[in-house]
Simulated scan of single mutants.
Amino acid sequence: MCGKAKAGTALPTEFIHNERARVTEWRFMKRGDNTGWHRHEYDYVVIPLFDGFLEIDNGNGSITKAQMKTGVPYFRKMGVEHDVINGNDFECRFVEVEII
């Protein structure tokens, strides 16, 4: 995730970073762990590695609950600003692929 303005408590592990893509696994150990507020500078795909929910804080005072299904990816355009939060009572992970 690019443009990170405030560090969160989720643990990123970067697997690939080259001139075409950046692939990062995000690990949330417990409910409430978060990525930290950030803005995406590239289009990206997220592949959840769990069944459950992520809570998305878009900075407008409300939290959106997004359902995740193991292996079912979703795509977002660059420019998204948010903080992603573990909304589950268990550890969860996802892989993020940024298209540079």
Score class of each variant (00 low, 15 high):
M1S: 08
G3E: 09
G3M: 08
G3F: 07
A5C: 07
G8P: 05
T9R: 09
T13N: 08
F15N: 02
I16R: 04
E19L: 08
E19K: 14
R20A: 14
R20H: 15
A21M: 07
R22A: 08
R22Q: 11
V23Y: 04
T24E: 02
T24F: 05
T24P: 04
T24H: 06
E25V: 04
E25R: 10
W26P: 07
W26L: 13
R27M: 06
F28G: 07
F28A: 09
F28I: 09
M29E: 13
K30G: 00
R31Q: 14
G32P: 02
D33I: 07
N34Q: 11
T35D: 00
G36R: 07
W37H: 11
H38P: 03
R39K: 15
H40Y: 09
H40L: 12
E41P: 03
E41C: 12
Y42L: 10
Y42K: 14
Y42G: 01
D43K: 11
D43S: 08
Y44M: 06
Y44C: 08
V45Q: 06
V45T: 08
V46Q: 03
V46A: 07
V46S: 05
I47H: 09
P48W: 02
P48D: 01
L49M: 14
F50M: 05
D51G: 05
D51Q: 04
D51T: 07
D51R: 11
G52C: 09
F53D: 05
L54I: 14
L54C: 10
E55Q: 10
E55A: 15
I56M: 15
D57Y: 11
D57M: 10
D57H: 10
N58K: 15
N58T: 06
N58S: 15
G61W: 05
G61D: 03
S62F: 12
T64R: 12
A66F: 05
A66C: 00
Q67C: 00
M68Y: 00
K69L: 07
K69A: 04
T70D: 05
T70G: 04
G71M: 04
G71D: 03
V72R: 13
Y74K: 04
F75P: 00
F75D: 00
F75M: 05
F75T: 05
R76N: 13
K77Q: 12
K77C: 07
M78K: 15
V80N: 10
E81T: 15
D83M: 13
I85N: 11
G87P: 00
G87E: 03
G87M: 06
N88F: 05
N88H: 11
N88S: 11
N88P: 05
D89S: 12
F90S: 07
E91S: 11
C92I: 15
C92E: 01
R93D: 00
F94T: 06
V95W: 02
V95G: 03
V97E: 01
V97C: 09
V97D: 02
I99A: 02
